[in-house]
Amino acid sequence: MVAHAAHPGSSSRVRRRALLGTAVLAALVALAGLAAYLARDGRSVPENPASKPYIRPRALLIAPKTRDPIAYGRAAAAALWSYDTRAYSQSELRKALHGWLTAEAQYADPASVDKAVPSAVLWQEMAANGQFATARVNEGHFPHAFTQALQADPGAITQAYVYAVTVSGKQSIVWKGSPAGGAESRSTTLAVRCRPGRPCALVGVLPSVAP
């Protein structure tokens, strides 16, 4: 974040843009604290066959070129819930996920993305067991608090074009010696930036889920 600007007016504008970029995140974090992981309701989702993905290592997922914030949020959640210790390193996964972030550094929150990746030490242990995970996205939507804010002030989104998207689904994990693996319901709320006429990009991952 810029600490100084050439002119007082410029400094004010830079500070205002930064605040606008984080306003949606800050508001939803406060609201989501009351309903953290409420969406972990164990919905029934068909599981991926354990044998198929274990035969062929998974490639790193690439961000789609879409202007739909919900479609982008669904794809980003799938990327965050997927990994393959047989195919790439922990640092390569982090680098790939950072590629989903907006190029505008004042809005991007790479630290929130890193928190979704297993630590380097844990990754080594998982790699020794050939562990990998696949994601099945069930649905994505704008959180209730976000839609209420838009209804109250429809023009507010045009200031930063940051959308909140909550995604739910299931993560299936497989490792050597356990072809059946295990699975659990997952949900997350993401901040997605979709400027008019440009593909969407990830801003960050909220620490709690906004229903």
Results as ranks from 00 to 15, higher is better:
P49L: 09
A133I: 06
Q131Y: 00
A96H: 02
S91G: 03
E47S: 15
S91Q: 09
W123V: 05
Q148R: 15
A71K: 15
T85V: 08
A75V: 04
A96F: 00
G181Y: 03
F146D: 06
V165C: 11
T147S: 12
V192S: 04
A39Q: 06
D114Q: 04
A191C: 14
A50N: 07
L61M: 13
Y163G: 03
G204R: 10
H98N: 05
V2D: 03
L97P: 09
R74I: 11
C200S: 09
P179A: 08
E184D: 05
G9A: 14
P118Y: 05
S172G: 11
T158V: 01
G155V: 01
A180R: 12
P8E: 01
K115W: 07
Y161G: 00
C200G: 12
E92D: 15
V192I: 15
T158A: 11
R193A: 03
P8G: 08
L34I: 07
D84C: 02
M126F: 14
G169D: 04
A79S: 13
G33A: 11
E139N: 02
R43P: 04
Y72P: 03
P143T: 10
A39M: 08
S51M: 10
D153Q: 12
T102G: 12
V209E: 11
L38A: 13
R15W: 06
C200E: 12
R58I: 11
D84H: 07
H7E: 13
Y54F: 15
V192H: 09
L202P: 10
A128D: 13
A18F: 15
H144D: 10
Q159K: 15
P207V: 06
P118D: 05
R74A: 07
D68C: 02
E92H: 12
T166G: 10
T147H: 04
V209T: 15
Y107K: 00
A35S: 14
K65Q: 14
A36E: 07
D84K: 07
R193W: 12
S208T: 13
D41W: 11
A75D: 08
S82V: 00
A108F: 03
